Simulated assay, not measured.
Amino acid sequence: MFKTSPMSAEVQLRWLGACYFFFFAILGVMVPYLGVFFESRGFNATEIGSLLAILMATRIIAPNLWAIVADKTGMRSELIKIGAGAGALTYLSFFHPGAFWYMVVSLTVYTFFWNAILAQLEVITLETLGDKPQRYGIIRSFGSLGYIVLVVAAGFAIGHWGPEVLPYIGMGLFAGMLAACLPLPANRVKLSRDTPKVKVKLAGPIGWFLLSAILLQMSAGPFYGFFVLYLKHAGYSEATAGLFVALGVIAEIVMFMLAPRLLGKYGIKPLLFISILFTAFRWLMMAWGVESLFWLSLSQLLHAFTFGLVHAASIQFIHQQFDVSRRSTGQALYASLSFGVGGALGTWACGLVYSHNPSLSWVLAAGFAFVAALLVLPLPGRRVETAAV
């Protein structure tokens, strides 16, 4: 594991916070507005759903390939740097207004390298924190801050200059991501040859957890793929839609601050169950209350549970269930099966339904979330221990 002095650990955590900021700032541009960007280039709802599904689908294979390299070689910060550099180069393809299959290839190549980053970032952060994993929420909140800043800024930029400004914003953020990760030390995880490697078992609690995570991300399909378009067709501007996204991220940041105490008091299982159940109700509000500022605002405030508390609990669950020799694999499995398989299936399926009946896609999402909540019930009820910060 990483062995650094308290001072060097604090410096490293600052750079990791910067990496989270730029990584999720890129998401803040790509996730809410990519649908609007593709629509401006003439793609229909089915094509947009298919293109957005690629963003999720590459998470099925790419993180696991990078995790194998990380666990075999001990390289983690190096993979983040490779992913950021190669991702920036391949992102240049967005500037060319290609047809559907051009964008398929462009998205596939760019996201293959981009997906090298997050799982390693999570592992390095938790290992740097050592016996204070409850500080994870504070470091991770820099990512939420990056997301909220760029969601709002990109919304106003698109409203002023049009969707074609998106590649320029994204390119600047990729440059920032590369600059933030370059100072990370190349501390490799050194394992003794005699260290037993625990075989990854997908049966039991891990299996139930991953199935629930897949269905939860399937339920987020219309939100990640069509939220801004849905609000635009309901009469809201892109800038207003960006403010609603920002409201959800503010709630998420607050939840990240509260998550350590909640996890220590109640444990992972009950908080996951309640949070996912709230998610089901949230999507129903989107289906039938989008024209009401009250219900739309409430649904966005529930993002604190849908993502904030769910993510904090999930990262802790994976960290507990996998030993040091398999932690990159564990984080990659979580990312690839939930955000990859679940996200791709959800975006694709909801894209098909959205093209016929936008409101019905949110009802389908609520059904996915309800089943995901039920799958949490077989998990063990172990609590997360909290230490003094």
Rank of each mutant, 00 (worst) to 15 (best):
F226T: 08
Y236P: 00
I68S: 08
T73Q: 10
G343E: 10
W208Y: 14
K232T: 11
S141W: 09
G351T: 11
Y136A: 00
I68N: 05
A57H: 11
L262I: 15
I148F: 05
L309T: 14
D323R: 10
V104Y: 14
T4I: 13
T111H: 08
M255S: 10
H160I: 09
M7T: 13
S106N: 12
F256S: 06
S77H: 13
V254W: 11
A62W: 08
A203N: 12
G172I: 11
A157Q: 01
G221H: 09
F38P: 00
D323V: 09
Q120G: 04
L377A: 06
L51N: 09
Q331Y: 02
F370K: 11
V11P: 00
T240G: 00
V389M: 08
Q120E: 07
Y110E: 07
A157E: 02
M30D: 04
A154H: 00
G381M: 06
A70W: 03
A99T: 14
F368C: 15
S8M: 10
L51R: 07
I26Q: 08
P378V: 12
L34V: 13
I61S: 09
L309F: 03
T306V: 06
V123H: 07
F370R: 06
M56I: 01
F223A: 13
W295Q: 04
I169W: 03
T329W: 02
L34H: 04
G248Y: 00
Q300L: 04
L296C: 06
R261P: 05
A313T: 12
A241D: 03
A287I: 10
T73L: 09
L360P: 04
Q300V: 02
I82G: 02
F322R: 01
T240Q: 13
A53N: 07
I117N: 15
P358T: 11
P183S: 07
W295L: 14
N115W: 03
P163E: 06
P196D: 05
Q320W: 13
V363Q: 13
